[in-house]
Nucleic acid binder design. Structure first.
Lengths: 243, 243
DNA sequence: GTGGCAATATTGTCCGACAAGTAGACAACT
DNA sequence: AGTTGTCTACTTGTCGGACAATATTGCCAC
């Protein structure tokens, strides 16, 4: 199937489209992406496909070992723990600074209202506004590198979400309340309180995610493209090693 | 026991070598790197040179816009501020955690001893052990992503150092004392104290760096690609340290 | 001098080719 | 049997050349 793309640069477009396909689950974790595959699907030269794959590999969206074909990254419980802990490390100190200034970013407040709204509307698709709440806090300190680091983590969270296709839900009610409490503590200038609340908030989310990733092995899906019938996939883990 | 072996590819090798040349100043900030240039210098195909350049671009070692040739990144005062602020954000919370556990990483302690030793020996080449002090703290929380983020920042600090070829110095004596104080406060479980000390420590370094980057416009030199008569400054006796 | 045009340099993309590495199957050998 | 060797099919890593699109430079006319 030929996929259409808008041309900024061929490689840019392919990279973007593939990334999109990964986050929305069209390319499930672990599915292989050969250079030829990509080049024919988009009708471009192999070198261009290769470049796109390399970029996504450097972004950790794909993983590839030496002479082997790239695969969509699979995030396990350990990764989730790591991602959330790093989020906590980064966001805690930012929160303390904001509390010191008693400054609450508008974008975070509106994002939290959105979640509440969605919840009242019966929707549970709150991942996006939830992320905006947090990135709003981070971005408000106006540090490009801090923002970049956090956004990278946020992207990985999205990958996790794509991975467990909407099973698992965190109660929007609790989320909204905790977010509100965090903003309140910032306004009160209570740095320790805000940091503690954030820790609790993210730690709960972390444990829930870890549980639903590690606890339930899930439906153990097949990877559609180019897999022989009844292929027992995914037993390799060792790179170029010698015993 | 499983032993790992590394097999380097052409692109890997070039990438590494170029990166090395950037950090040790052989390729000064702003110098252009055309694909043809690189491909002929290393005697490889242009596609390989291109791949290496793209990797370094994604690492922020080089910068490149649309159809223009890549250049070695130039870090200005704003970048330095950003880098150090992000360091502070990340490292503060890690320090608090360590203080909570009253845990002092051995590697940081030994690294600080090294600085003291070098200072007593009359040397001012303390950038490396200084970084090891800080990465020792970060790495001790055992989070791959946190470490990766911090190491990326540390690399940018190295770039800054390369950029101002050893004018400017921060007294090793003060550095060692502050490091020691930080470790002491961790041992005492004083999270706030440790975080405050770190803030002071890094903020001073930041301001010094910002000053010597922004205040002095510098020699505003031409970029002589590969060996022009004008020998770079590089006097090794001079205090060549900023933190 | 300055605007504009032509020559040049450099990138972005394509193609085709081939060596080298990986993986699975199957035969051969001890 | 179980280990080892070989074959084949697939894929990656690298090469070299080619060409259009774009950026840079230098020159010319005004």
């Amino acid at each position: 199937m030929v996929r259409h793309i808008v041309v900024t640069s061929v490689v840019d477009a392919i990279t973007e489209d593939l990334r999109e396909q990964v986050v929305n689950g069209e390319l499930p974790p672990g599915s292989p992406l050969t250079e030829l595959d990509v080049s024919t699907r988009y009708e471009v030269a192999r070198s261009s496909a290769r470049a796109a794959i390399e970029r996504l590999t450097s972004e950790k969206v794909l993983v590839r070992r030496n002479h082997k074909t790239a695969r969509v990254v699979e995030l396990g419980p350990d990764d989730v723990r790591d991602i959330y802990n790093t989020r906590i490390y980064l966001e805690s100190e930012v929160l303390r600074r904001l509390a010191g200034l008693r400054r609450v970013p508008v974008s975070s407040r509106t994002a939290n209202s959105e979640i509440a709204e969605l919840w009242r509307g019966g929707s549970y698709q709150i991942v996006d506004p939830d992320m905006r709440f947090h990135t709003g806090l981070i971005d408000s300190v106006d540090s490009a590198r801090t923002s970049a680091a956090y956004h990278s983590l946020a992207f990985e969270v999205k990958l996790c979400m794509a991975q467990l296709q909407g099973r698992q839900a965190l109660s929007p009610q609790i989320i909204v309340a905790e977010h509100a409490r965090i903003l309140e503590l910032i306004e009160l200038g209570d740095a320790d309180g805000a940091a503690a609340m954030l820790d609790e908030h993210l730690s709960r989310a972390r444990e829930l995610l870890v549980g639903s990733l590690g606890g339930t092995p899930g439906p153990e899906a097949e990877w559609p493209s180019s897999a022989a019938p009844g292929a027992p996939i995914r037993q390799d883990a060792a790179p170029a090693v010698i015993e």
